[in-house]
Design a protein around this nucleic acid. Structure first.
Lengths: 173, 173
DNA sequence: GCTAGTTAATTTCCTGTGCAACTAATTTTG
DNA sequence: CAAAATTAGTTGCACAGGAAATTAACTAGC
């Protein structure tokens, strides 16, 4: 009922006029502005997917990311997770806390350095991922269903380029 | 000093082995998982750019988006902004409040419907954008500097596809 | 071996934002 | 035309998350 209007409003304006090239006047078409478009799209994807693990598994995004990394690496510390995911360490700390309380991961002080703690999936955590991961992959598959294999590959490549460039910019500015 | 380690940690693991195709085992490589990669990239871009207008113009993202839309459309209501940007109406409401207090926009009750209010840039708002927009565009230009024209165009096309698919998924699930 | 500095992780404080309840204006229905 | 339903925008509340202070474990310098 309420979706109708918003649906078409989404990208309705800005039909086709001045298709390419950034405007030079003192106006900015956000729909042609990559940072905005990218963020808007990513937010919507992230939020839609978040419902999958929020509603059905009571996991927030940070927790889900940590679980996914653990499924992949099997031994991590909070520090490493911060570095890999670019998440704030406070956020990571709280996510870990929640996961441990629910018995999905275990943490034991690292033998070589008592400050850090080794993180591991528990049996329960592994079991949960056994259900969750295929669902997430199915959801992704549906999302990219309209892309050709080439488009998908190119997309990842371009994203990698942007990531690298982002670091280059960060070094200077 | 501190960047060194994190820099290379970013995508260091997962070098080249099993380059393509999603894994079928019970593990998930987040670096191959589009929703994660996209969100991570978009977040970093957004946050980096946010500093541009936070530090130098005291604008948060919501405010900046509204200004940009106003530079483009010149007459809007909060409702429309919500529809265009997918932002929550409370967020939009507060952003508008801040912009008005700073004299960057004006709002007048719409003659045909007293509930809604027409939003306009003030002279001050327009002046601020005169400085800000070129900076934002320059920043974007630097970000995409390593992309070819074709890659840039394809990227936007693929994003449009994803947006449309996202709506299709949303209708069902 | 003790002091100063560093580092991993936690905690505190505070801001921004989503949700839901609300207000006020408008439209619809009977 | 009055009552009910809808709609634009605001506000209260709770919570997530970032910055900075804090704690605890380690390292370096003397």
């Amino acid at each position: 009922m309420n979706t109708e209007e918003e649906r078409q409003a989404g990208l309705a304006m800005e039909g086709d006029e001045d298709l390419a090239g950034p405007p030079t006047k003192q106006e900015l078409d956000l729909n042609q502005f990559l940072p905005y478009r990218l963020n808007s799209l990513a937010d919507r994807i992230s939020q839609a997917l978040a419902e999958l693990y929020e509603e059905r598994y009571q996991l927030n995004i940070a927790q889900w990311r940590i679980l996914a990394w653990l499924s992949h690496c099997d031994e991590l510390t909070a520090k490493k997770i911060c570095a890999y995911t670019y998440m704030d360490k406070a956020r990571v700390s709280r996510a870990i806390q929640g996961l441990e309380e629910r018995g999905l991961i275990s943490r034991t002080p690292a033998p070589e350095d008592q400050r850090q703690q080794d993180l591991h999936l528990t049996a329960a955590g592994r079991k949960l991922l056994t259900k969750l991961i295929p669902e997430a992959q199915a959801w992704e598959a549906e999302l990219v269903a309209t892309l050709t294999a080439g488009e998908y590959r190119d997309l990842l490549n371009v994203m990698r380029k942007l990531e690298r460039q982002l670091e280059r910019i960060g070094e200077k500015g």
